[in-house]
């Protein structure tokens, strides 16, 4: 067998190598094009334990972000950015629902989310669910996340990587824009302003 590898590949091998290359190229190409295909559909439980979907906030604009609240070393700033943007919008902020979707439902229970989101004011909605429900929602927003194995002997101590960013969804729950996570509150407010009545 070893010797055959030094010979020139057979046509069949060449064909399969070509197919593999093609498959690889397709794999690389798909995430880039799929980035725009955010369906924004979800079926989750809110922080009061009510089952909700994208239709539950009909008539309101939504600012949405995905993440997790247990941050033992660094915490993302996106929720604060959303809160800051709504403050800047004043009364018109009532037309916008700020929504945080956890990618860590094991630790981010409804009760925990309610408690945590208190720091951002009464408008914030926290969404969680079963691992499956959360995974479906993340897929619908093209959010990727990885739950790392917990530290030895500490089943509740683990790190979650997730793609960052703030989504603007329209009053029917359809995707309008994804803002980079480094956008300031003032810039987020400017993006929302033209959408307000």
């Amino acid at each position: 067998m070893r010797e055959t590898t030094t010979e020139s590949p057979s046509p069949a091998m060449r064909a399969s190598a070509f197919l593999m290359l093609l498959a690889l190229l397709l794999l690389l190409a798909v995430p880039a094009t799929a980035q725009t295909a955010v369906t924004g559909r979800f079926r989750l439980d809110d922080h009061d334990g009510h089952r909700v979907t994208q239709d539950s906030y009909a008539g309101k604009l939504r600012l949405m972000t995905f993440g997790y609240t247990y941050c033992p070393d660094i915490c993302p700033t996106s929720l604060g950015t959303m809160a800051g943007a709504l403050t800047l919008l004043g009364d018109a902020a009532a037309q916008v629902v700020p929504i945080f979707v956890t990618v860590d439902p094991q630790r981010d229970t409804a009760a925990h989310l309610k408690d945590y989101l208190d720091a951002f004011g009464p408008r914030f909605v926290g969404l969680t669910g079963t691992a499956r429900m959360v995974d479906d929602a993340a897929k619908a927003f093209r959010v990727r996340y990885v739950i790392h194995p917990p530290a030895a002997g500490e089943p509740d101590s683990y790190v979650v990587d997730h793609s960052a960013g703030i989504y603007i969804m329209d009053r029917d729950g359809a995707f309008l824009a994804k803002l980079p996570h480094l956008m300031g509150a003032d810039e987020v407010a400017e993006r929302l302003r033209p959408l307000l009545k």
Binding site: C75, P76, T77, T81, A164, A185, D186
Partner: peptide
């Protein structure tokens, strides 16, 4: 900075 202007101006993705 309750208006959260520093995150954008100083490019702060995470805290602290």
């Amino acid at each position: 900075d309750p208006g959260f202007t520093l995150t954008g101006a100083l490019a702060l993705p995470s805290l602290p």
